[in-house]
Design a protein around this nucleic acid. Structure first.
Length: 93
DNA sequence: CGGGTGATTGTTGAA
DNA sequence: TTCAACAATCACCCG
């Protein structure tokens, strides 16, 4: 409930906007985009995007582990920008 | 103290 | 430039 997945371009709300972090899918997609599309030459995102998603789960925790690992690592990345964002914002205000 | 909200991330492909 | 499925996320802030 209460989860209206709006569309892209949400809206801004912060001065420096620390854009949170990526997600395991982003790291996985980075590897699949070139592979999936490589195995499906000529297909469009309509096919790849969908297949990509099912393939993503097609793997196993261990398979997506490297993606999750990066996901958490990316989160830390956001952590630093966030803390700096807060510091800047605090100083700005 | 607990809850849920929204914002965001990246790909491709096209108009 | 933006959108759209696909998926994860999860930090953010409040009463």
């Amino acid at each position: 409930m209460a989860a209206p997945r709006k569309k892209t371009q949400r809206k801004k709300k912060d001065p420096n906007a620390p854009k949170r972090a990526l997600s395991a899918y982003m790291f996985f997609a980075n590897e699949n985009r070139d592979i999936v599309r490589a195995e499906n030459p000529g297909i469009t995102f309509g096919q790849v995007g969908r297949i990509l998603g099912e393939k993503w789960k097609a793997l196993t925790e261990e398979e997506k582990v490297p993606y999750e690992t990066k996901a958490e690592a990316d989160k830390k990345r956001y952590e630093s920008e966030k803390e700096l964002y807060i510091a800047t914002k605090a100083q700005s205000e």
